[in-house]
């Protein structure tokens, strides 16, 4: 019982991070029909920004805010300067471009920040609470992770559903030409979309790093699970990304606890293949077929 609870709580926390990462991918896919393979190194770079500040003596929170802000800027700059040139062109161009960005950001980070492992602080304890003589496997940092992801998702829903700018962003994503004819500055909305997605990705990056080690490739395993989560939910569905992320986190945690941590990557693949066989569009697909 104790073990199951522990596994479920760990899975939920991990799942929240996968969900955030998957959500970032879905936001970019929905607005520009691009799978952003550079999402992980972008989040890695912003986590390093936080780490540099923290190592220079700033508090964790200054670093946290700086990571999210630099994520916003990085997303906007990358869309405006690089991605803009392949939007609306053949899909393969965008794939090659974001894969290229992946490599470039990796190498730049190794040059600028160094390729060695560095430890990243956590703002709350990473040990479970002590109740009597047993330890509840819920850590302060785990709670913070869940709350942070939920708050950011809530803010995004409020932005997209409740504000004029959110309505303009959705219009620009769903019908760019019609949106232009209605006075929406579509280019600006796509830049904002990339910037916001990059903030969500940065959040995943700094949460994964907390209490652990970072190096230029530390996000790469998260990419795989983030992608699986996004595809599980259906690349088109933000709600699906969140559910997919949580489901994957729980599943992988159960596998890791009861079968063995060495089969975790394999089970992620298995889950992906099964879902794609049963529902090719993903669990929450809004379209039933797609051009391939």
């Amino acid at each position: 019982m104790q073990q199951l609870l522990s596994i479920l709580l760990t899975g939920l926390t991990l799942g929240a991070v996968y969900a955030a990462f998957a959500l970032a991918l879905v936001m970019i896919w929905r607005s520009t029909r691009i799978v952003n393979f550079a999402q992980a190194p972008m989040a890695m770079v912003t986590t390093y920004v936080a780490l540099v500040l923290i190592d220079a003596g700033a508090s964790y929170w200054v670093g946290f805010v700086a990571a999210l802000l630099s994520g916003f800027l990085l997303g906007a700059v990358i869309e405006r300067l690089v991605v803009r040139h392949v939007e609306g062109k053949a899909e393969i161009n965008a794939v090659i471009l974001t894969l290229g960005l992946f490599i470039v950001l990796h190498s730049l980070a190794a040059i600028v920040f160094g390729a060695r492992f560095r430890s990243f602080p956590a703002p709350f304890g990473i040990r479970g609470f002590q109740v009597g003589d047993s330890t509840v496997p819920l850590t302060g940092f785990g709670i913070f992770t869940l709350v942070a992801v939920l708050v950011v998702m809530g803010l995004l829903v409020a932005l997209f559903r409740g504000t004029d700018i959110g309505l303009r962003m959705r219009a620009a994503a769903f019908g760019p030409e019609v949106a232009r004819l209605l006075g929406v500055k579509v280019g600006r909305m796509l830049t904002l979309g990339w910037a916001l997605a990059s903030v969500v990705g940065s959040l995943a990056g700094i949460l994964i790093a907390g209490g652990g080690l970072v190096h230029p490739g530390y996000m790469d395993s998260v990419v795989v699970y983030g992608f699986v989560a996004a595809v599980l939910g259906g690349l088109d569905s933000p709600g699906g990304a969140v559910v997919g992320g949580l489901a994957l986190g729980l599943t992988l945690s159960l596998v890791s606890g009861y079968v063995g941590s060495e089969v975790v990557p394999l089970s992620a693949l298995l889950v992906l293949v099964v879902v794609l066989l049963v529902r090719p569009g993903g669990l929450f697909a809004t379209v039933h077929e797609r051009r391939v």
Partner: peptide, 24 residues
């Protein structure tokens, strides 16, 4: 300009489509 083929943004609600008109 109402383009050919209707130009409804199908994923948005009727009210949201109309609000876009007022915003511009």
């Amino acid at each position: 300009h109402v383009p050919e083929g209707r130009g409804v943004i199908a994923q948005l609600t009727v009210e949201e489509n109309l609000r876009l008109g007022s915003l511009g």
